[in-house]
């Protein structure tokens, strides 16, 4: 019994980690290549979820909705980049933060106006809304397995992008300067728009994958963006490899903290005290982890070479 719970929580942690990776990958791209801090990344995650919810409603197929919503979120990212973000690359980080904070307010309110204050649930097709028996006595929701699979595929794609393309060279070098991008002989403005749209699509995909479990809601982006930041900080800002590993670490630690911390605490304190302390500590666990890691490595676990 004990080991089966452990195994299931391991998969849950993995699934959360994969989701966090999809989000932090987009941020890493925009930060690594354009040196741009995007607080509104969470808003794109939310947009992805709402696009998918509406499309599922109209098409009747979740799969089809995802396939349509990905380019749609990318387009939203592309438009945002053209309208606002593009004019901010030369500015300092404070301006990035303020303007994208303004974007969050706008996007949240627009979603409120268009979709209403209520969240939207996304029904899953039957073949996904089921459970599989992974090992004798251990069942796990099919859809969560799918999330893990899709996330790993995306990670593999990004691995190829980072390690085997010229664009990836920039990311690996942690290069955020235009001369180097220019030296590649590509049109910088188009490249930057494209990268931003790709990041948006990844965030949107994460939103679409989580929405059938939690439903699409306003504010879902603001909650997760900070956790994503913790991932990026721990991994080393601008590092794709760091983002991947840190996402998995955070996913696992958060999940295990929430499920097992009270049992662990009960070993050393009264059960009453444990029940008060455990939720507080588990809520702060990833931040404490971040603090400890930063105390020893201010640049995170895998900082890019030049930063």
């Amino acid at each position: 019994m004990e080991t089966s719970i452990l195994f299931i929580q391991l998969l849950n942690g993995l699934q959360l980690g994969i989701l966090l990776f999809l989000l932090s990958a987009g941020l890493t791209l925009t930060f690594g290549i354009m040196d741009f801090v995007n607080l509104a990344h969470g808003a794109l995650y939310m947009l992805g979820a709402f696009f998918c919810a509406t499309l599922t409603l109209y098409t009747g197929s979740f799969i089809l909705a995802v396939l349509l919503a990905i380019p749609l979120t990318a387009l939203a990212g592309f438009i945002l980049e053209k309208l606002v973000v593009q004019h901010l690359y030369d500015r300092d980080h404070l301006d990035h933060v303020l303007a994208t904070f303004g974007l969050i307010l706008c996007i949240d309110t627009m979603v409120h106006i268009i979709w209403g204050p209520e969240g939207m649930a996304i029904p899953l097709p039957d073949f996904l809304n089921s459970q599989v028996e992974l090992l004798p006595g251990i069942v796990f929701p099919t859809f969560r397995l799918l999330i893990i699979a899709i996330g790993l595929i995306a990670a593999a794609g990004l691995y190829i992008l980072v390690n085997h393309t010229r664009l990836g060279m920039l990311i690996r070098a942690g290069a955020s300067n235009r001369t180097m991008v220019g030296a590649l002989g590509v049109d910088i403005r188009t490249l930057f728009s494209g990268v931003f749209a790709l990041g948006a699509a990844l965030a949107g995909l994460a939103g679409m994958l989580i929405a059938p479990i939690t439903e699409a809601s306003i504010g879902m982006g603001s909650d997760i963006i900070i956790t994503t930041f913790v991932v990026i900080i721990i991994g080393g800002v601008g590092s794709m490899k760091g983002a991947f590993l840190a996402a998995l670490i955070i996913g696992l630690i958060d999940t295990f903290g929430r499920s097992f911390l009270d049992d662990i605490f009960k070993l050393v304190m009264s059960s009453e005290a444990a029940e008060t302390a455990a939720p507080a500590v588990s809520a702060m666990l990833i931040y404490i982890l971040m603090a400890v890691i930063l105390a020893f490595r201010p640049q995170g676990l895998f900082p890019p070479l030049t930063r």
Binding site: F229, V230, Y287, M290, L294
Partner: peptide
């Protein structure tokens, strides 16, 4: 000990830590 974007995100995270601590 950090600067720039790291500092922004870390202060943000610590702020949110307090938020979650009170929520819990």
């Amino acid at each position: 000990r950090t600067r720039g974007v790291n500092f922004i995100m870390i202060t943000m995270a610590f702020g949110q830590m307090m938020f979650y601590a009170i929520v819990s």
